[in-house]
Design a binder for these strands. Structure first.
Lengths: 106, 106
DNA sequence: GGGAATATTCCC
DNA sequence: GGGAATATTCCC
């Protein structure tokens, strides 16, 4: 609907059948962080076990809408906290507003 | 994020406090149908108690994204069915894929 | 059509 | 941070 921006190949947005792999949110976040094209906005941390949002405004304005159906940093954090709470697979661990970590295997 | 398209003044997307009035979906759908600028795509029916989607493809491609965070006709119908099921306020009644009705007061 | 999983928002 | 309401998707 916008032209540019990377179009994820992962499942859609909402929910439905869990299928097998991790939740769409986790996959999309992984892809987003892993994309070296946008390392100036968000990238893995030195330990590679967490990621850092270097430019929160650009992260919210440009990156979020290309992976999710919104452009709110707080909504992204809310989701992050959801998976931390459930610890369904313990992929993510929230540390601070601009510093999150991935716990184990993906 | 797109420039054109009518930007609704109603609540946001998701949920949160119910506040007071009808759900955002009902308000947005009402506005969308009521907008005379797009009567060739969707408009009230003769009785004014139901609305007709005259051009489903354009409805999904152009109108839906400007009011909701998607462009799927089926997702719109799903919501319509949700409110029919609950009959929370009995605003809408689903009749057919391209012909829905509004039951009472708005 | 609708159940259920996931997403997005609002509010505390 | 997280509860809860609403939205979006997937599947039957």
């Amino acid at each position: 609907m916008d032209g540019g921006a990377p179009v994820t190949t992962t499942t859609g947005g909402g929910g439905g059948g869990s299928g097998g792999g991790p939740a769409p949110f986790l996959l999309k976040t992984y892809e987003m962080v892993d994309d070296t094209m946008t390392d100036d906005i968000v990238s893995w941390s030195g330990s590679m076990k967490s990621f850092v949002v270097w430019n929160p405004p650009e992260f919210a304005r440009v990156l979020l809408p290309s992976y999710f159906k919104h452009n709110n940093f707080s909504s992204f954090i809310r989701q992050l906290n959801t998976y931390e709470l459930r610890r369904k697979h313990a992929y993510f661990r929230f540390l601070a507003e601009c510093c999150c970590s991935i716990a184990d295997i993906m």
